[in-house]
Design a protein around this nucleic acid. Structure first.
Lengths: 155, 155
DNA sequence: TGCGTTTTAATTGTGATCAATTGAATTGAT
DNA sequence: ATCAATTCAATTGATCACAATTAAAACGCA
């Protein structure tokens, strides 16, 4: 039992009190759930996210992709090279601005999207959330992310 | 405008609809917020989590630490060696069971905890959440994590 | 006791993440 | 037109995360 008159030394924080650890460990668990689900497509989770982006909007620069995924070229360049090595995308310099690299789907890469349509459903089942609960949670997390990113911009 | 009579080919999922991407990107943003805050302690975010664990319960095995943090020895062993190299912890074989490695704080490591007490407050400010909102969100994320881990156990 | 099984941490290899730097291309201001 | 500043992707080096494997220690059961 803690002494109510114990000296006022600063106490270290507790792991399980932290929203941050909950977010971190939920994220790790999620990636582990994706692994067997994505095995059929032979994609890692970040690779899957990049493909999601490209299935929506093709022929974009590395910068634009990174802005959507919140990843920089140090992460994306090797990841995209692996996707290119598998023939899912092509990377080519923009003829009008040689600094830019445009990323475009190949036919193989586009075709892979047809096989991805049931993935959200399977992940949704693992999460045990209803459609509505998942929507609400997604909104809250996006709001949290946006506030964290705004803080980063200010600091 | 989409053609309501378009063929029923399977459509790939949309990035911004995904709870998963919201969780993933919020987690990345959180780590970036921690970076400057933890700079004063010269700890990375996973190292900080390990120290949080140890400030609560000292002299634990690598297994026990990994169970709380959801990390395996492949992640923890090098991380703990770095903390040991900085003199914050010591790692020694359990005399009663030489398979086990017990991790204990040094005086330096314990003293670092006193300087960590204001970190949750500073992160809380960056998150823009009230104490109550953060508590509620933490509970929901822990519940989600537990369901994902239960699914992993079943599969 | 002896020996197969289990437990535990460490190691190896792949991939992801980011900070910092590099080098090339472009832009802009004069 | 020139040249400094900016933009963009790539690279390097450090850390993290995990699957698969290894090796040693401990356990269990005949």
């Amino acid at each position: 039992m803690p002494d109510p008159l114990s000296p006022p030394t600063a106490a270290p924080p507790k792991l399980d009190d932290q929203l941050c650890f909950a977010l971190y460990s939920a994220g790790l668990a999620l990636t582990k759930v994706y692994r067997p689900v994505l095995e059929a497509l032979d994609l890692t989770y970040p690779q899957y996210l990049a493909m999601l982006c490209l299935w929506e909007a093709d022929d974009v620069t590395v910068n634009a992709l990174g802005a959507r995924l919140r990843l920089d070229s140090g992460t994306l360049t090797p990841l995209l090279k692996r996707l290119e090595g598998r023939g899912l995308i092509v990377r080519r310099r923009d003829p009008g601005d040689e600094r830019r690299v445009r990323v475009a789907l190949t036919e193989t890469g586009r075709a892979l999207g047809d096989r991805a349509s049931d993935i959200p459903l399977r992940i949704g089942e693992a999460s045990g959330l209803s459609r509505e609960e998942a929507r609400a949670e997604r909104r809250r997390l996006v709001a949290l992310r946006d506030r964290l990113e705004a803080w980063l911009d200010r600091n």
